[in-house]
Structures are given as C-alpha cells and as structure tokens.
Design a protein around this nucleic acid. Structure first.
Lengths: 137, 137
DNA sequence: TTCTAATTTAATGAC
DNA sequence: GTCATTAAATTAGT
C-alpha cells in the first residue's frame, strides 16, 4: 500500500515545514547499534533498515539519513573503500545469482558495557565518531 | 567534511578563529553524568568540577564551560529558580559563620590521588532524564 | 527510485 | 552573547 514512502518529502507551495525543533539525537546505545551495523554493511537494504529502526526505536527515514550522512562524512580513503566493496558485492551477486540471503543479524548490546572497539572498523584508522577520549588539551 | 565549509562563514580575511577547531563533543554517558551533577548542583565548586573532569575524562575548563552554557541556556524560569536557590545557600553559609568566598582559590594539587571510579558513576541510578530524550534540555 | 554531494538548520562547545 | 563546529534533515543532480 503506502509502504514505499521514502526520504523525499515533497513539501510544495506554501508549506515549508522543515523539522524545526525536533531533531533526533542518538544516544550511545543507539550509536553502538548503528555503528556495528555500519561496520558490517554500510549499505543496508530496506529490510535491514527496518530492523534497525525497530531496534533503536525510530523511523526508517532517520535510519536512512544516518547511514547516508555516515557514509558522506567518512574520510575519503574509507569512503572509497566501502564504495569499492559495494561494487564488488554487486558484481558477486550478479555472478552467482544468490539472492535473499537469510541474514538474521541482531545485535543485542548490553546497556552499560559500551566498549570503544569501534576504531577497528573497516580499517586501522581512528574512528571519526564515538569519541572515547575527547581531546583534553 | 571540511571541504568548503568556509564558504558559509562570514569571516573574511584575517584568521581570527574563535572555535579553534577542537571542540569537545560529549557522548550520552558523559552527558548523563553532567546532567546528574547539574540537577544536584548547578553551581559546582572547584572540587566537584575536578571530580567531574576525571569522571568524564576531560579538562576542568571543559566542565566549567559546560555548566556555564547549561545555566545560560536554561529557560528563564528555571534559570531564575536555580539563581534563587544559590542565593539561599549563600545566605545560609553566611549565617553559619562559615566565611567561604564564592571564588575558589586552589593551588595545584598532585594528581596521584586521582583514581577513576568508572562504572559506579555518582549513583547507581542514572534515571535523571526521560529515556529516549538524549537532548539534555 | 537510490545514491552522492552540498546545503540548511538546530544544538552546542568554546570564548 | 558571539562564533565555530557538529549532525540531522533536506535538496539537487546523476
């Protein structure tokens, strides 16, 4: 029915509502879930995004926005890397006609045991967000 | 990320940068600690600020800035309330012949007595703000 | 449509 | 109170 409602909100004419005042800020639990998912797949499909939306209790649009901006704000080196990985995966899918892979990846993170192991994501680079040690000068 | 952000700046010519580029961003755990402390005392003394600095692993100046911004950006009603509460406390101090000035002149103490008591953070009950509202206002 | 890249807006740390 | 930066949200272009 109306399932295909995506990012594009056609606000036309006199209506220029632009989300003033309600900006969603993720807490560290949500960020842990999102970052973990991002490290495994920076380009999640709709089903994965819906699962994530359920996990962190927000809308799919917010999830999509987060992933897009997350990719956009990666360092150029890592951005290139995930883009190449995505191309390779697409090629592999086309070659082996393997679809509908049953990925049942749920990430149950405990609430207070957030460890800063996100620096080992995709590279040896220091992670761009989740600052475990904010710059004391 | 920082490709051409300077186009949106109204600062032309000389480098009179004010933000200095290194801005500390608190995560939710740190904000929980800070907000808890703020709810108990919006005007922490030097010892409390130093303790908080150790808890959230940043400098005392950062803590001071946070409290200053937090108080200044409080709604006017709340701001008036905490100010009255502070005046009442000062009057009580003066009445009890404890002449403590409002400025804290501390000398540099050795930092070998500083130990992290991380995990038991100020309280075992971090339910100060409503869950699902990471913005601390 | 999805995606990227750029822009806008609100929040906030630093001063 | 200002400025700078961050991140969510939005817009345009391919």
């Amino acid at each position: 029915m109306d399932s295909n409602r995506s990012l594009t909100k056609k606000l036309v004419g006199s209506e220029s509502k632009q989300g003033k005042g309600n900006r969603c800020l993720f807490d560290s639990e949500q960020l842990t879930i999102l970052n973990t998912s991002f490290s495994e797949d920076p380009y999640p499909d709709f089903a994965t995004r819906r699962e994530l939306a359920n996990l962190v209790r927000c809308s799919i649009d917010v999830i999509s926005n987060w992933f897009q901006n997350k990719r956009a704000r990666l360092p150029a080196k890592e951005r290139r890397k995930i883009l190449e990985a995505r191309k390779s995966k697409n090629n592999a899918l086309q070659n082996s006609s393997l679809q509908a892979t049953t990925r049942e990846t749920f990430y149950c993170v405990s609430e207070q045991s957030i460890s800063y192991t996100q620096g080992t994501v995709l590279d040896g680079n220091p992670s761009v967000d989740t600052p475990g040690d904010p710059s004391q000068q």
